[in-house]
Design a binder for these strands. Structure first.
Lengths: 158, 158
DNA sequence: AGTGTCACCTGAACCTCATTCGGAATTTTT
DNA sequence: AAAAATTCCGAATGAGGTTCAGGTGACACT
């Protein structure tokens, strides 16, 4: 267990995953130059990442400002019992919903939503209040975003 | 203003952006089949999205569970004054930091962090507490995630 | 209504790059 | 130390990205 660590990933794997998480349109040739491998070797590793699920997909990043969704908010929702999976799950299909987590602390669910304007936000809040098992909702509207990026590959040594 | 709406996007544009935000590895031929266009026509539109910044990039989505970062948490941080940009910004370089927002409500900053284990989380919290202008921190650890996806193209008619 | 302009799409051609294959080298196991 | 497995490289193939010239439709202006 010298080259591969506990995750089954060596240094090249980490570097490749990091490069791909920043830009997945680089050719295998340029990726190979950066990590010191031939194009087929890079190809094989990347294929392995996808097969193993380490890379769940390759997607285009939409700029929310340029695609009509400048309003970002986080909602803390208290529910009676654990009715999360029932009531809350009907919101899954809304494209405005980006995240739904069950969290510790004084609240049950945490939602991340991104919408066109405050009017749409109000409509969603109204819809939440109308849910029978929703007790209370705290809304945190994002005023400005200093950092927002997908999952990174690196790990800091604290 | 019949074909294009206020954003300069027609129905095909929205559909294409939606398809690409789900899977950017489809060939222009298959994309063309889905929206009713020839491969070069699709290519030209996609090129336009990238040039105009609507698509900010194409990236590989890393599965946090499979890449050694199973711990997800949201931190609400109160700071004295507006020292956000000074103290907080030194955290930008940590790959564990995924989001930093300034938000309304009873707190100033909202952080989204994803780490390897609770020990690393504790180290980060300690580092936060040591910052001179950090007043208080509330931590919400995600117990389970029901939905987590990048920016979607669609808009719900409320 | 006619005409010019512009934006967009199509089909063919090219050319880069992804993908596959056999063989060599390195590592791991017995 | 030998053998097995894994990983890598270089060359060949093929798919698909990319470009170009030409055609079509919508819109505006006279």
């Amino acid at each position: 267990m010298t080259l591969k660590d506990t995750q089954g990933l060596d240094a090249i794997d980490r570097k490749l995953l990091g490069l791909l998480s920043e830009d997945a349109e680089q050719s295998y040739a340029t990726l190979g130059d950066k990590v010191g491998l031939s194009p087929p070797a890079v190809h094989e590793r990347v294929k392995r990442y996808k097969a193993s699920g380490r890379i769940s997909g390759v997607t285009a990043q939409l700029d929310p400002m340029m695609t009509g969704k400048p309003f970002l908010a986080f909602l803390h929702v208290d529910t009676t019992g654990w009715g999360k999976s029932t009531a809350m799950m009907e919101l899954r299909d809304l494209p405005e919903l980006e995240e739904i987590h069950s969290v510790t602390g004084d609240t049950c669910m945490l939602l991340k939503v991104r919408m066109q304007d405050s009017k749409a936000m109000e409509a969603l809040l109204k819809r939440l209040y109308d849910m029978p098992d929703v007790v209370s909702t705290k809304t945190y509207v994002a005023l400005s975003t200093y950092l927002e990026r997908p999952v990174q590959a690196g790990i800091t040594e604290f």
